[in-house]
């Protein structure tokens, strides 16, 4: 019987694994190989491609912007999500309110882009409202700004990312909060811990696992903001939102495959190290 079980598990896994092997693992190996070769003549190039990308100004700009975006957005969203999840836990119509936070997830990017252009272009709604309320003069020298074609694009994109993914984060936090042992919270209360103390000393330490997954998932989702950025601002947007996604896409279109291969390897390594580091930090805390 054991043998039959062992065989079964292989049959279940095989189709998926073969596909992953063919479509992901095998070509990824090829990418690694190509990262050490020239694009056209396919001669060995050593680490030349890696040297090229690290002196390439577009690559450096894209890395800088991507990091800036991540460092700005993720802590903000993690904190905002926690505050909202905590507040939401104590209201009556939680389910309805939650729907509104989740809905942007279901809004196709193409439709978002239509609205965003109307809101954020120079003659759009945002400037109109600001002027109506007399805020335009107070904010920036009275001149209307094109929010897509200037440095403000970064904040538009950051706001879009948070708008789109906040519901996701809130759901994860809520699940984490529900998972905190109720008895422990009660015991703390009986022992005379105040509301804030209970939150700080009992609730938060128990939410570390949620924090880890929320950071990882937010990071992953932050790459999908490319859709909005591309549809609103095109392949070559303002410098402040030129990110790795734009760069990869443009290299791909221009068939700069050697540079791209090296950049892919660098990024993949960075992601894996980043995630492993997070997990290690968390395991250390837990253990």
């Amino acid at each position: 019987m054991r043998r039959k079980v062992m065989k079964a598990r292989l049959y279940f896994l095989a189709p998926s694994f073969l596909g992953v092997f063919l479509f992901v693992l095998l070509p990824f190996g090829d990418v690694v190989r190509r990262s050490f070769m020239t694009a056209i003549t396919k001669e060995g190039a050593g680490i030349q491609n890696y040297r090229t990308i690290f002196t390439n100004s577009a690559f450096l700009l894209a890395v800088k912007n991507t990091l800036r975006f991540t460092v700005f957005c993720i802590p903000l969203m993690v904190a905002l999500g926690l505050v909202i999840a905590l507040a939401m836990g104590s209201i009556r119509h939680m389910q309805t309110v939650k729907s509104f936070y989740l809905f942007p997830l279901a809004m196709p990017t193409a439709t978002v882009a239509v609205v965003w252009k109307m809101v954020f272009y120079e003659k759009g709604f945002l400037n109109q409202w600001l002027e109506q309320w007399g805020l335009l003069a107070w904010l920036g020298n009275g001149a209307a700004v094109d929010y897509i074609g200037s440095g403000a694009a970064f904040y538009v994109l950051a706001g879009t990312y948070i708008w789109k993914n906040l519901g996701y984060t809130v759901v994860l936090w809520l699940a984490g909060i529900m998972g905190v042992n109720g008895e422990m919270m009660e015991a703390a209360q009986v022992d005379g811990a105040g509301k804030l103390q209970r939150f700080w000393y009992v609730m938060l330490p128990n939410l570390k696992g949620s924090l880890y997954t929320i950071v990882v998932i937010s990071f992953l989702n932050s790459f999908k903001i490319y859709r909005e950025a591309y549809l609103v601002a095109g392949s070559y947007p303002h410098d402040s939102i030129y990110m790795l996604q734009h760069l990869f896409n443009n290299w791909f279109v221009n068939l700069d495959l050697d540079k791209m291969a090296a950049a892919v390897v660098v990024c993949a390594l960075f992601f894996l190290v980043f995630i492993m580091l997070l997990q290690w930090l968390w395991d250390k805390e837990a253990g």
Binding site: V24, V31, F252, V264, L272
Partner: peptide
Amino acid sequence: MYVALMLLPFQVMMLSNYLV
């Protein structure tokens, strides 16, 4: 490995996909 692959964004997989 499956989990690690799930965490890589499309832009990193784009070139591999293209080659296949």
